[in-house]
Design a binder for these strands. Sequence first.
DNA 1: GGGGGTGCATAAGCTGTGTCTATGGCCCGT
DNA 2: ACGGGCCATAGACACAGCTTATGCACCCCC
Lengths: 309, 309
Amino acid sequence: MDSSASRPLPQPVRDLTGYDLLLSVAELGSIGQAARAHGMSQPAASARLRRLEAEVGTALLERRPRGTRLTTAGELVASWAQAAVEAASNLAAGVAALRADRHGHVRIAASLTVAEYLLPRWLIALRATDPDTVVALNSGNSAEVVTEVLAGSVDIGFVEGPDVPSGLSSRQVARDELVLVVSPAHPWAHRRRGPRAEELAAASLVGREPGSGTRQALERALEQQLGVEAPAPALEVSSTTAIKAAVTGGLGPAVLSARAVGAELAAGTLVRLDVTDLDLTRTLCAVWPEGTLPRGPARDLLAIALREQ
Amino acid sequence: MDSSASRPLPQPVRDLTGYDLLLSVAELGSIGQAARAHGMSQPAASARLRRLEAEVGTALLERRPRGTRLTTAGELVASWAQAAVEAASNLAAGVAALRADRHGHVRIAASLTVAEYLLPRWLIALRATDPDTVVALNSGNSAEVVTEVLAGSVDIGFVEGPDVPSGLSSRQVARDELVLVVSPAHPWAHRRRGPRAEELAAASLVGREPGSGTRQALERALEQQLGVEAPAPALEVSSTTAIKAAVTGGLGPAVLSARAVGAELAAGTLVRLDVTDLDLTRTLCAVWPEGTLPRGPARDLLAIALREQ
DNA sequence: GGGGGTGCATAAGCTGTGTCTATGGCCCGT
DNA sequence: ACGGGCCATAGACACAGCTTATGCACCCCC
């Protein structure tokens, strides 16, 4: 109902350039050097930073004759800014990979969960080791990823386990935890313990369309535990965002990746419950054609993914 | 040496407006409604989204007569964008709190670690429960926070524990883990196990100035373990950013909050080591004058902080 | 089967923001 | 005393993005 998500971003942070510049000043020690690092003239940088200080209403910089340092408030703003700039960098890395369709040096196919939450950081790390590598990303469900890897149209794939089809080698690169979430107004939100699998299966859930890996994992877990086929969701929506909106609006509980609802749990717009007798953890695996080993940038990417887990 | 941090943000993601708009379209189901939510005309939104699609090089929207939905690629970009918009919102919340100096309904004093990594999210959650509350934030070291709380010039304070001075009530709201980090090129980076406390004390560390809470916590832990006074850092720098740059540049190891180096560890620009015989965990506490209870928005903020830990 | 409504695209004009070059002042080191 | 690094100011220019006005496609409903 409150749906704070639809509130547009406040003007002062729409454009991160000023904050990015602030970070460079913190790192390089002078406005002029930061300006050069950003390919702009020194007066332009000076003006931007001045405007930034006016927006924040506090002195962020200590301008000294031999250079410029950050004030305490400046350090604080810089640390917030760094998180924002980092997230924006992830976004940029993802977009770049999406853009370089088919012309990349590394062709990657990834299921949605991996592409959404893990891949951007890997790509940035990859750029650090192979600076000139162009990445091409195809995102699809696990079956599509497997097809592409087997066809050789990509160099490496990432799928939601636990099953790996024959003909592929695999390594686990992460675990993905599915969690049950409800609106804070839902009756379950105030129970001491979460529901049991039986109750969950009987509830009218909000869920994705049949092809979704998250839905498959849930159905599989329910069937294993209860021995009967899990019922279809009472409400089918086409995107994670739409599910979250529906749950927040009180249309029912949903099962989603923990990574997808971290912010909502932190903000209290969603409440997490543990299903007492159900293990909703699944593995995320890198896959490549059996008998080969990833080479070149694909090998580096695999190493990065393994290092991070 | 490589110092990827100084690279400026690529143009396409400097301005998050288009991505923010994309998120609103995903949530609201039409370009026109998203435009209204952002206080702009429908053609303006349409144009922005069109430019966004051109930048990404892929269709993100499926324009249907009764509305607009996101394509698969659109969903992917939206999920990346959401993380970026969220981080930018945190930044905005922090800046707003910094700006409302002394005129807020809730006056908060927070030590740097809390202000940097926890407070923005709390403030956003607070806005959800108390929409019209204006927050005023003062950031300083723990001693300054305590002084302000005792003087009654703030309604609630957040400090780095474990000691809480007399005259204050407190509740633990989080734990903060300090970690030892070195450059990947450092000899320690390839050791099976991290150094022992003794080695750490003998190493030439990069550290903050004497007043820093992080430095105090490290010195305290070393003194407890070794029984001697810990030596001053071989290189003193004035900001976390500068420390990270120094460590990356190979000037020596450093001990920092795990929250501060998450991205660098993920990117592989820093390597984390565990000091085998040293517990570097400290607690973060909310504090307020003894004998009272936080009231109004301060009470809500405390509840949010306790809920999140 | 034709209004009315909803939703998106295009066109034209304007305002404002951000940038550049050029210049001056300040402080430090030599 | 002088040169160099660093930052601020001034003036001019260019472009980006917004708004209003309008047209077209589709759906619902009477």
